[in-house]
Design a protein around this nucleic acid. Structure first.
Lengths: 177, 177
DNA sequence: AAATTACGTCAATAGTACTGACATAATCTC
DNA sequence: GAGATTATGTCAGTACTATTGACGTAATTT
């Protein structure tokens, strides 16, 4: 089982490193950082029988109350079928409600309930704490440095999705554009 | 279907924002940044019928040639059963080879083949390019700022796993400790 | 009236992950 | 040397997230 010298290639014993011209340090840091960043809410979600998908839906419904199903799909970049089960569970558990769209009655506007808002905040809190602590620990005084870096990591054509919130926005939060 | 006013909570129409005392900007940027960061290798992986799990295994086998199955499980924080299928596929496709441990013959040391090394580099290349571009676009001259921030985002007890490579390390890359 | 749009849903499949159990071989311990 | 422990592999069952394709309904647009 271990000897397959005749079929398999020979083992390479030298490690990939910066000498290969690749930024492995930040690649790996990003992996570890994101893994731990999501681990806090994941623990809370488990109590509800929810997963990462529920968090994402709940988050954006709370950040953009009244967004439609189509808009949500566009932000999450998943298919309607993937969203269906998750959204249904959030509605059945009274975290999210659907209202018929006022302009277009085919649309379903999604809103959080008080319960949904509370959970969204509970999930965001440890993440925010972690970020705050990381900014402090790393001695970064200008938080825009991190914001600018992360924003630059996003595909340019998708940056429109990013709603940095009251900071950058003038009036709109959803709807017409 | 849309009217369930008697069972469900009332819709909240105001958006969560920084006023809730939470750093939503960086929370969302981190989500979008990581999503796009992994999208480049994901496209390549799809050609091989591989997924994110294959990437992670291949990456660490190339970064720490000779690591054992147990060490790999510890880095990835997954179970043996989850690793099994993915590792088997990488071995069957001649990207990774197993060698009996020299000291302890129960152990299987994992090494990349030339094919596995090539794929690992091909996957890392677009990620590295993205990082490089983001550092440039955001006008960050001190890359240690980003490194320090990301490292501070990792759980302290897990930072030992982070092998920033030839930069911080003196001699060891695997094996004795 | 016909085409399109927004949404919901059914069926089938895939990738990643889990728990629990069991087997084998090698090493360690008494 | 016998027994316990360790490293690995594997089998069975389950769960979550995601996919494609197809179809239906109601509302809007052309």
């Amino acid at each position: 089982m271990t000897d397959r010298s005749h079929t398999a290639g020979k083992p390479i014993r030298t490690a990939m490193s910066v000498e290969d011209g690749i930024d492995f340090a930040i690649i790996e840091l990003f992996f570890f950082a994101y893994r731990d960043f999501t681990s806090d809410p994941d623990q809370i979600l488990a109590d509800y029988g929810f997963g990462r998908a529920h968090h994402r839906v709940l988050h954006f419904v709370n950040r953009r109350p009244g967004l439609t199903v189509a808009e949500l799909l566009d932000v999450l970049k998943i298919t309607k079928q993937s969203l269906a089960r998750v959204l249904k569970q959030l509605i059945d558990t009274d975290h999210v409600v659907q209202l018929q769209g006022p302009r277009d009655r085919r649309q379903r506007e999604l809103y959080p309930t008080a319960k949904g808002r509370a959970l969204a905040l509970a999930l965001a809190r440890p993440q925010s704490r972690r970020i705050h602590a990381a900014l402090g620990d790393s001695g970064i005084t200008e938080r825009t440095l991190v914001e600018r870096f992360l924003e630059a990591m996003v595909n340019p054509e998708l940056r429109a999705q990013i709603d940095v919130g009251s900071a950058k926005m003038s009036g709109k939060s959803h709807g017409e554009h």
